[in-house]
């Protein structure tokens, strides 16, 4: 009975692991094979990798898309960390009744479905397009602004600030630091791991964001990586080797972040429920 149970458990977990990993294996072997071989279900590594990459860089504007996505993701992550940590710190360290009420109201915004605010946002950015083209429709600025401040990260920083020793704030004040000084000189260096975890989640969210860039970006040269891949995926005569190469390149940054910083990655996820 017991050994039967063991066999069942290992079989079950192995099947789950194979199903989880298989699409990755397929992606990785596909980028080394010709499109014909991919359609014939070849699952062994081939010798076509260099050709696939050459065709990719020659026929698809993947470099501009990578640059656009990087600019957007880096600025969004920076703004998110700065604004959300300031607010999370403010709500927790300078606590007051009024702020607690505002905090609760901000949390409600986490339940707002993006589809519900996308049209007014589109119209809002449309109305400022002429006066401020840098943050108007079809600008990277318009992609960044609505995604850079979210209640989730404020909540995340506030939860983590609960573990921040408040004596340090007093010590900083006694040493003559201003309130802003206490934040930048004491809080920020102490909370490095929180910032790392938040940075990973913010970067991944921004890098993978699809719907809002799809709505607000129009010209092909402004395209981000998800828009490019979506476009490749809907082509009628797909070159599988080339498309898979683009997908692997797009997945590399987030996969690397995951493998190099697994602990922070999981800490980032957990931050949302802790406390």
């Amino acid at each position: 009975m017991n050994s039967l149970k063991r066999i069942f458990i290992y079989t079950f977990l192995s099947v789950a692991a194979i199903v989880s990993i298989f699409p990755f294996l397929w992606m990785l072997t596909s980028i080394t094979n010709k499109s014909v071989d991919v359609t014939q279900g070849r699952l062994l590594p081939g010798t076509h990798l260099i050709e696939n990459l050459k065709t990719l860089f020659a026929t698809v504007d993947i470099v501009p898309a990578l640059i656009n996505s990087s600019i957007i993701a880096i600025i969004t992550t920076f703004l998110t960390l700065l604004l959300a940590s300031l607010a999370g710190y403010g709500f927790e360290i300078h606590r007051s009744k009024g702020k607690d009420i505002i905090f609760t109201i901000l949390l409600l915004s986490m339940m707002i479905p993006f589809a519900a605010i996308m049209i007014p946002l589109y119209r809002m950015f449309g109305s400022i397009s002429e006066t401020a083209p840098l943050i108007g429709i079809d600008s990277l600025g318009a992609v960044i602004l609505p995604t850079a401040t979210t209640a989730f990260f404020i909540f995340f920083f506030r939860q983590n600030t609960k573990m921040f020793p408040k004596d340090l704030v007093e010590a900083g004040r006694i040493d003559g630091l201003s309130e802003i000084g206490v934040f930048f000189r004491i809080y920020v260096p102490t909370m490095k791991t929180t910032y790392a975890a938040a940075a990973i989640i913010a970067f991944m969210n921004s890098w993978n964001n699809y719907l809002w860039p799809l709505v607000i970006l129009q010209s092909p040269e402004k395209r981000t990586i998800p828009l490019l891949i979506s476009n490749l995926g809907s082509s009628y005569s797909p070159d599988y080797g080339v498309i898979m190469s683009a997908i692997v390149i797009a997945t590399l940054p987030t996969a690397l972040v995951f493998f190099l910083m697994q602990k922070h990655f999981v800490a980032g996820m957990m931050g949302s429920v802790k406390g």
Binding site: S96, K99, I119, P120, T149
Partner: peptide, 24 residues
Amino acid sequence: VGWLFIIVSVIAITIFNFYPMVQA
């Protein structure tokens, strides 16, 4: 000073979340 810490986020979330909700 406490309000200074939160003010930018509060304004941003109001402009980019609550105001569009009302508009919608």
